[in-house]
Design a protein around this nucleic acid. Structure first.
Lengths: 340, 340
DNA sequence: CTGAAAGCGCTTACAG
DNA sequence: CTGAAAGCGCTTACAG
């Protein structure tokens, strides 16, 4: 496994490094290098499994065929699936992806952006904490290629691929309303994330559309760090409320799981006493009794669009146009809302 | 966001690039650079948010503070969780991780290894397809730091962190046997993966220990690509078998989900008619009715050990010693096996 | 304590 | 068609 370098190839083949390099970068024809020489080079490279040193290449070209992916947390199934799609799609175009998790921490996110730039990634895909406007503005001003996914900055004009959170929850809430559930609660996270705001809005507007007055006590916002513990309290309050709720919309898949656990604990019959809907899916939701009605996000589309837009941007094919995608969710109706 | 380089700092501070570089690499004291100068440099760097060009640094040092992670599939929760742990642990030590998925394809895996080496990763963590002995031998002979996780090569002496697959399934099977289930089936993948072989062995030996004769028809090995469709057939056969089974051990979490779906389809009562155990956990397994008894893998430990061992190896702290970790699984008993 | 200079392994104008 | 040479932005012996 002796390392082999460009100069070795050149020497062995009696040509210059330039020639070898040109050939390997598929600029042989353009430089009128004889097909014979080209073949020699390619054969040699294949035989000895030569790969140019990535650092040297990157250093001299200022490019890396790498895209950076920054997400809140790779362990979360949702982001893991997106990462998988992005990786797959990127690979199709010969790009590698390096990922890092920000843990929803804006400080870490800033670090990561800077470190990725530093690693000379050609572009960035970012599921941002939404608390780094300055950085985003900078990237934009520097005309650095990037696309936001899952969360965007409404006040900054950028490429993004998000989901219609508002519409998704609205649709789901209306589904409940049509099933005669009138006292619907909404359990979400204490968070300024646009997605969370939008989901709440969707919830509220659905009620409005049905002329149902919003009961503030029926909106529970738990802390991200401690939602497991706060869930019990929240559920209890909802159940004991004089204006007893008959349905709950959960704003994320893990809130759904957690909430359902608590409902079970206190022996609430789902969906008879309380119907539930989950924003986002978990792979065993269909196996739970009752199977969970869920708002499904188009994970693959998010990943694929993000890569496509980014690569176009990198190659300058988007021009000055920003690409904004708002993808529709799908309401997958199962059993957890009961029926009429 | 104008780019700033070492030479800019040197010029602005009226020192040489050497000095700046030395200071930034924390070799200031060792080189007796005045604290004053050091402070100047650090302040400047902080203020201008300078980061050395990663490629240049890597090229001249031949190191990258990066570890490569190759796994079958980042979208699989199990590997996503491991990736999360590895990332977190690596970060503690100032290492970045770049990951890629092999899709269980040895060819792709080979590509990835080679491309990672090329990217000058300082070490590799590998959940291998187990079909690349040659590559592994090479890495070993080249004394390149790496550790295998989840799957290892029994015939090659390497660092590894795996789980006691044999023991895990044996324990689970015995649990069923003690609950008087005598006709136990095993549904696994058609695969040469050591982990799968070990799980099967564990199953067989548990039966042996209870003097129960193995019924070959009760072992179903589905193809990885098409298990969803083959599952229905397999389940039907098991149910219709004259020697009707009363329990099933599933070799992976997705087989469990898939199998349970089919059992439901044909209205089998779990656990009354058929008890089930899952190798590996899914986050909603406790919410399913009956909650699924599962063999739990110590995900965090796998990730943490892998990083620790690798970093020690990178810094040459392991000496010539191979570190082999076989971690115990835990049988999490829930409802899906019924009770006496 | 500090600086000039070589070197890491590529790519790429430029000259022939 | 091909080669010598500069340059990418660092690190690091070496000399002072």
């Amino acid at each position: 496994m002796k390392k082999i370098y460009l100069k070795d190839i050149a020497k062995d083949l009696n040509v210059s490094k330039t020639t070898v390099s040109l050939v390997l970068n598929n600029r042989g024809n353009e430089n009128k290098i004889s097909l014979e020489t080209q073949k020699k080079v390619f054969d040699y490279v294949k035989k000895h499994d030569y790969k140019p040193n990535h650092f040297a290449r990157g250093l001299s070209r200022g490019k890396s065929e790498t895209i950076g992916l920054i997400i809140p947390n790779i362990s979360d199934v949702f982001y893991a699936r997106i990462a998988g799609c992005i990786e797959k799609k990127a690979k199709e175009f010969g790009f590698t992806v390096v990922f890092s998790s920000s843990n929803e921490d804006p400080e870490i996110e800033r670090e990561l952006i800077s470190s990725m730039l530093n690693r000379q990634v050609d572009g960035l895909i970012l599921a941002s904490t939404q608390q780094n406007s300055l950085e985003i503005e900078r990237l934009k001003n520097a005309e650095f290629p990037f696309v936001l996914i899952d969360r965007h900055y409404p006040n900054i004009d950028t490429n993004f691929v998000v989901v219609d959170n508002y519409g998704g929850v609205k649709k789901a809430t209306k589904h409940l309303l049509k099933l005669e559930r009138k006292k619907i609660a909404f359990i979400s996270l204490k968070s300024e994330l646009g997605a969370m705001r939008q989901r709440l809005l969707g919830f509220q507007d659905a009620l409005l559309d049905f002329n149902i007055e919003l009961n503030r006590d029926h909106i529970k916002e738990l802390s991200f760090e401690n939602y497991q513990n706060e869930m019990l309290q929240a559920i209890k309050e909802l159940v004991q409320d004089p204006d007893k709720v008959d349905a709950i919309v959960f704003a994320t898949h893990y809130l759904t799981s957690s909430g359902l656990r608590q409902l079970r604990c206190i022996h609430i019959d789902v969906p008879r006493e309380i119907a539930i809907v989950s924003f986002d899916e978990l792979s065993a939701f269909d196996l739970i009794d009752p199977a969970i009605t869920a708002i499904i996000q188009p994970v693959e589309e998010i990943g694929n669009f993000a890569v496509e837009i980014l690569l176009n941007e990198i190659e300058g094919r988007n021009g000055k146009v920003r690409i904004e995608k708002v993808l529709e969710t799908e309401l997958l109706i199962r059993k957890s809302c009961g029926s009429q």
